[in-house]
């Protein structure tokens, strides 16, 4: 599924829209936005966890990304796939917004990270280790420089090297080299934490 590509439209499309009712373009934008949010909400919320710690900050960041997408939809021209376009916007907004959210975290002091819920039927001890590993993974990701962070988050969401190249502007070979290095570091850190828990 792709975004509707923007086409030149006559002035009359806007002028003839009945007063108080959404224009055709607005209705399409509305539907497109809701579809994108429906499709990518979980990924965007995970992305927010890769940038900020506090649950309220994550929610703020998610909303800022949603606003960014809403504003960007009319400018989409189909030069990139919908997925790469969306992740580009989301990561760029996350990077610029997290500077401000980071200041708030510092001024409020250290905040306990949101604890994930344990599934009812899971083995409690094993799940606790998994939760700790998830928390540790997010924590290590947040310490990475923006480019590495962007790459690993995209990679964890299942994007290909070619897609990461389109989003980050780095060549596929550079992406592969950096990812391999970052992945090793993440594995070490997360595994070490898992071992400590046992």
């Amino acid at each position: 599924m792709r975004l509707p590509v923007r086409k030149r439209k006559s002035m009359s499309t806007e002028a003839m829209a009945p007063h108080g009712q959404p224009r055709v373009e607005d209705a399409t934008r509305h539907d497109t936005f809701l579809r994108l949010i429906g499709q990518y909400e979980a990924a965007l919320r995970r992305l927010a966890a890769g940038y900020v710690v506090h649950a309220a900050d994550r929610e703020d960041l998610f909303q800022e990304i949603a606003v960014g997408l809403w504003r960007a939809i009319p400018g989409y021209r189909g030069e990139a796939s919908e997925r790469t376009w969306l992740y580009r916007i989301a990561h760029n907004i996350a990077i610029s917004s997290s500077a401000r959210l980071h200041r708030r975290e510092r001024s409020e002091g250290p905040i306990a990270e949101t604890v994930d819920q344990v599934p009812a039927n899971a083995d409690a001890e094993q799940e606790a280790v998994r939760n700790e590993q998830r928390r540790r993974l997010a924590e290590v990701i947040r310490t990475l420089p923006a480019v590495d962070r962007q790459m690993i988050l995209l990679h964890l969401e299942g994007l290909s090297y070619a897609e990461i190249e389109q989003i980050s502007g780095l060549s596929q070979s550079a992406v592969a080299t950096r990812l391999s290095r970052v992945r090793e570091r993440l594995k070490e850190k997360v595994q070490a934490r898992g071992m400590e828990q046992r």
Partner: peptide, 8 residues
């Protein structure tokens, strides 16, 4: 691990 995290 990353994709199974819960969120609010």
């Amino acid at each position: 691990l990353w994709c199974t995290q819960a969120y609010a």
